[in-house]
Design a binder for these strands. Structure first.
Lengths: 135, 135
DNA sequence: TTGAAGATTCCATCATACTGGAAGGATGAT
DNA sequence: ATCATCCTTCCAGTATGATGGAATCTTCAA
């Protein structure tokens, strides 16, 4: 075995959905902290690391850049630092997320309308992009 | 002047937020149709093209790939084709958007909680990533 | 009419985010 | 013991999505 109860990079990959290569890449890129190593020099991961990887996986799937993800993770790690700047950063992210959610909702509505109202319809125009612009 | 009332690529760029280079790139990549040309071989754009560019701009900002954007635009263009497949594709996108919106909302909540509850607090753990996993 | 500004094409380069492959060491089941 | 499988590092290559620059027109305003 390795570091007390830790899992290998392969197991962490399976549990998180992030391939081993990509996990190493994230480590090199400084997105995650260097993993603990066992006597055999293998990286060792615990549940919290897997959780972080899962978070990265989901955030990436939502279109966040690695830079964004790093900032979100730093925010999480620094949650006890009580700094005004950290709070301000968090609030900026919340505002940004609200904007994203609103825009996604607008697009969702547009696509839903396309699916429900316009299919097979011979009307020459469904002015949906117009409506979206007003949203 | 150019094609009846059309604007140049530079104007379209200003109105849409997409730089001229990028507009040409989108044309080359087949994301948008080749623009009409005037006698001087300049590309000419109307309001609807600008609207499309604005849509692309926003969708890209939301993390959609150019492939996704192309598909959404095709969906819009084909809205009168009445095909079962087009409707099915639209509904798949709606489901996907609902999922994205739900995940973004979960992350939004997490960041908001970080901002409001955990700043300056000496509690050793805010189990927010855990909660997020359940979401 | 003479520039400055903005258009054209084409080709190169960049940034982000992986992904593949080689060469070698460790592990684990038969 | 051996063989597949997984780990290690390192370096190269790929995919996506632009972006920069050169060389050359066109337009427009002074």
């Amino acid at each position: 075995m390795n570091v007390k109860g830790g899992m290998t990079i392969g197991e962490a990959a399976k549990r998180s959905g992030v391939p081993p290569k990509t996990i190493r890449f994230y480590e090199d890129a400084g997105i995650i902290a260097p993993a603990a190593r066992g006597d055999n020099r293998y990286r060792s991961y615990g549940e919290s690391e897997v959780q972080t990887l899962r978070f990265i996986h989901r955030a990436r799937g939502l279109g966040f850049s690695l830079k964004d993800v790093g900032e979100l993770l730093a925010l999480y790690r620094d949650r006890n630092r009580a700094s005004r700047e950290v709070k301000a950063l968090a609030l900026r992210h919340v505002a940004e997320l609200d904007r994203k959610i609103a825009e996604l909702s607008a697009i969702r509505t547009m696509i839903a309308v396309l699916a429900e109202r316009c299919h097979g319809d011979e009307r020459p125009d469904c002015p949906i992009l117009d409506e979206l612009d007003k949203a």
